[in-house]
């Protein structure tokens, strides 16, 4: 099986606190994967591990079969952080050119791609304004554009709809579907369970640093009358009961 993202028995600790406790996760290439869990469950730590931003105490992380410590692995990932923070003194054009240079996008292609992406996220008109003048939603759109600048195979999105208005959310959903049809792997963490239900092929629910449920949305909800939101709440409560 060809996996885009893989965590094997991943353990991450900060001091005495274990954030990820032997986490196993497999994301197939080309699928849209929803990563769900309550606050503090270990979603962001998992994402940071997938990006090579933190070193696990034990276990293994693979991105398209390669450790994320290797730049070649990160070349295949586009990352959209939960809270989009960029160099406030730069304009959208400069931001995208900067990240394009870092990713080694060929210069002629980069110029075309910047225009294409800024038009796609509806920021072409403000391309020469410094980011410090932007709202949260506008910055989030730039964030999406930077994640796509090098045309990555896999997108890792941390709460991608956070800060977006309903129309922008709808646009994002439609864009993610398009990207999925282009064969991109999309891994996103979200609190918006209805969104995950609407978009994802597969979901995983994480609690206390462990995956407590994973599978396709249909198989997870099979034989149950309620929706993903109800299922999620029940699963978390059951896991709490089990823990007690």
């Amino acid at each position: 099986m060809n996996y885009a993202l893989e965590c094997r028995a991943l353990r991450v600790s900060f001091g005495t606190k274990t954030t990820l406790d032997g986490l196993d996760l497999k994301v197939r290439a080309g699928e849209m994967f929803g990563f769900l869990g309550p606050n503090g469950a270990g979603k962001s730590t998992t994402i940071k591990s997938l990006l090579g931003l933190i070193q696990p105490a034990s276990g293994e992380v693979l991105v398209h079969g390669v450790s994320p410590d290797h730049p070649s692995a990160r070349r295949r990932i586009g990352f959209l952080p939960e809270e989009a923070m960029y160099y406030r003194f730069l304009t959208p054009m400069e931001i995208l050119r900067f990240y394009g240079d870092i990713c080694g996008v060929e210069r002629g292609l980069l110029t075309r791609r910047i225009e294409e992406l800024l038009k796609l996220v509806g920021m072409w008109e403000v391309r020469n304004r410094q980011i410090k003048t932007f709202s949260k939603g506008m910055t989030q759109k730039i964030s999406l554009a930077q994640a796509l600048i090098h045309d990555p195979d896999t997108l890792i999105l941390d709460e991608p709809t956070s800060g977006l208005d309903p129309i922008a959310r709808m646009d994002l959903r439609s864009l993610l579907k398009d990207l999925r049809h282009q064969g991109k792997t999309i891994f996103f963490s979200s609190h918006e369970l209805s969104e995950a239900e609407l978009l994802c092929d597969t979901i995983a629910i994480i609690k206390n640093g462990k995956i407590i449920k994973t599978g396709s949305v249909e198989s997870v909800l099979a034989g149950k009358e309620h929706n993903l939101e109800r299922f999620f709440i029940d699963t978390i409560k059951n896991a709490d009961g089990g823990a007690r």
């Binding site: 990006l51 730049p71 809270e83 923070m85 160099y87 080694g104 964030s143 090098h150």
Partner: peptide
């Protein structure tokens, strides 16, 4: 502090 390092290091740069 400005939380820009995460995005930068998620790119293929050492």
């Amino acid at each position: 502090q400005n939380r820009t390092l995460g995005v930068l290091l998620s790119k293929p740069i050492g």
